[in-house]
Design a protein around this nucleic acid. Sequence first.
RNA 1: GCGGCCGUAGCUCAGUGGGAGAGCACCUGCCCGACACGCAGGGGGUCGCUGGUUCAAUCCCAGCCGGCCGCACCA
Length: 887
Amino acid sequence: MSKIEIPKTYSSKDAESKWYDIWDKGNYFAPKPGKAKESYCILMPPPNVTGKLHAGHALDVTTQDALIRFKRMKGFEALWLPGMDHAGIATQNVVEKLVWEQEKKTRHDFTREEFVEKIWKWKEEYGGIIAKQQRSLGASPDWNYSMFTMDEIPNRAVRKVFTDLYNEGLIYQSDYIINWDPVLQSAISDAEVEHKEVKGAFYHLLYKVKDSDVTLEIATTRPETLLGDTAVCVHPEDERFKDLIGKTAIVPICNREVPILADDYVDMEKGTGCLKVTPGHDFNDFEIGKRHDLPIVNILNKDATLNEHGLDFEGLHVKKARKAILEKLEELGQLKEVKDHVHQVGHGDRSKAVIEPMVSKQWFLNVQDMASVAVDAVETDKTTFYPKSWENTYFSWLREPKNWCISRQLWWGHQIPVFYCGDCNHQWASETDESTCPKCNKSNVTQDPDVLDTWFSSGLWPLSTLGWPDEKAMEERKFSTFYPTTTLVTGYDIIFFWVARMMMMSMKFTNTIPFKKVYIHAIVRDKLGRKMSKSLNNGIDPLEMIEQYGADAFRFTLAAGSGYNRAINLDPERIGGFRNFINKIWNAYRFIAPTLELADKELPEASKLTGHEKWILSELNSVSKVMNDSIEEFRYDDSCNAIYAFVYDKFCSWFVEVSKNILNGEDAAAKKQRATVLKYAFRKIVALLHPFTPYITEELWSYLKDENEDLLIIQDYPEFSDDLVFTKEQNDMNKFIDVITGIRNLRASVNIKPKEEVKVELFTDDAEAAVYFGNNKENFLSLAKVNSLDVRSKSEHRPEKSIMLATTHTEVFLPLEGVIDIEEQVARLEKQKVKAQKEFDKYSKKLTNEKFMSNAPDDVVVEVRQNAKEAEEKLKSIENSLANFKS
RNA sequence: GCGGCCGUAGCUCAGUGGGAGAGCACCUGCCCGACACGCAGGGGGUCGCUGGUUCAAUCCCAGCCGGCCGCACCA
């Protein structure tokens, strides 16, 4: 294509579909050993197989992809390992709903095998849409490594781990009080319970005491549970009830006779100081029950309706039963009063149902020792969190761990590999399916029907994705190269669920940390800082954003908002802003495109470079350093700001502008050299940006590269070089920019038309700057429309009838032909003077402060002296000019 | 209740023991042969409040006020 004819605005769509295919089919995402001679591995947090790409995923993809592209370019053997989670509850729900809609059947209308088969079918057909959506963002994981948590290898890992832990006695079965989700009809773990504020009431009930006229007043928020009461409890030192300890209370309605106990747990200040004890449906009561050996009465069915212990209320849902029981108590005169009360009630994080604590036989994993090992790994910095403060969250969970309830009453997931013999009652765990009892040799063998918590297999992810425990698979997937993995990138909401568990499991089974660094990125919120939710309808659809602004702009927006912060408030307008930036790059290319043919492959030696060329190369060198350092520390906000500022302020606004005269000029050698530097710098810019904006950079690279060069995705990432530091040229340029900006400022202040040319006189005692200005007359004309420039020493006379602006090194005078509004100019200068005076006072005050002079470090004193001198220069310039005006 | 975080320009947020910053928004003037998804210029902040440490505090410490998050529990 002819490069001159490229359109004014960049079309993201064409580039996106083109380059993704080329990368993917060309196997560019596969890890290859490179010059860094090191591996680098990021485990992608496996999205749910039911998932659809949302803004949070987009951030996940952006932060990880930027990192892996960076490391790939740095020459690491870089693997980003993708996968998918079977998401037990979520997936089973989706299919159950679908089957109900289509066939009006529930899962119980099928055998377990039939229903699980349906889920697999759904998974093959509709599951994993998200993996396709990740591609539209430019994600570059090695898809050949993709793993599903219910694939063969993870299955084996789960079974091996379970069996080993079972045999070690760390996995045990117990009747214990658990969180029962009546909608899922399954136990869930503590981590899956969300406490929400609910308006309820304190109900004050009256319990009779046997063989006595005394009644006990007991406050409760859950009156219906009285049907499961097996004791009443008071504090041992509570004078009010001391006499009653050891007597018998009568539970209303069911008239159960229960002991009145003393236990330290009771708080005399709370409620009435008297507690009803329901070990079957309350966590604390369960503990009291254990201490006092109380019987447990379970009053609920799996769906949270009352069972036979509900007596007349059997079959009623707890909510209705509460009302009915209160009516009955009222009738019996045993409801004394009702007080409004706001309290926290547990809800299932998936089903949103009210959780009913219930005693049930479940499988638990004893995590006490594993947790302390996991704490140690982070305390000793074997694994480090970025930002470090998240380690507190990690510790807070692991320092007081509760044993993990790992069984779920579902069908979709890893079935618990425990087998029972119906004949001899033997129970054992096995890595393989069993049909014969090893003890009695009979084949009346059944497997435990429950499945494991989804996080059990997720916890093994660092191991199983690299082939563990299958030796052949470990070799194929290069376990020894990539384990331990390098960096885990995820959100703070799953530090407990996932990060901690991977750490525990990996340490347990390999005695090695699973990852060296954990980068915790922010949570994406809407522009007002609210969570994105269906009810607020404030969700931002990544696919829409990509459609509207392009994947690069969307990625750059997310990256620019990612550092050590905990939230990104995403405003589509911001994406629009960065879309403009992408377009700016496109147009910078359009500017240099016609000069590419002139450019040499190599930069000329430094002695031949012009001041402006040295300046831009020096600035480019600095920004390369910032990019390398900031990406390494996950400060993508710094990276994006640095490259944005460089491209806009340095490259486009100044270097391109000062290059126009040369490129349009007659000096062929200068032209060629400038074309070479432009091309060199632009190739670096494109490479520096590639981790964040892969599409446009790959597109532009295709125009910039030599025929024998490969795609940008595997080019070297620009590094800092000592040979490209040009301090003098940077100083010169900064002074030049000061003066040009000063002239533009003066022009604007007296409304000189943009095209009108002016005469300017500069007064400076800075000899270097004077020479530099003198050599740049052409640029003064093109950048500030100065057709006549005189550079003089400050000892010379200033022009009459002119306006003036002072920098720290140079006085800029703009003589005016017409009438000047003297008062206006005096006012303008007075204002400047106040500022300059303030500045000068600040420094001189320090220099006359003895304590400062004796205590401050030398370099600070030197700096303050320099600042004072400059401020004084500037102040003097302004004062002189003012004196002129006034005279 | 325990633990943590935050309070800097209209908005969203960086930042450092020694010169208050960016983006967006706003105001003014410009379609200047890369770009109006643009160019040039500009205004705007008691760095939450009060003390302390220090030669020096937006930054460190304490207290307070305001906002957020996590955990535990509330009979």
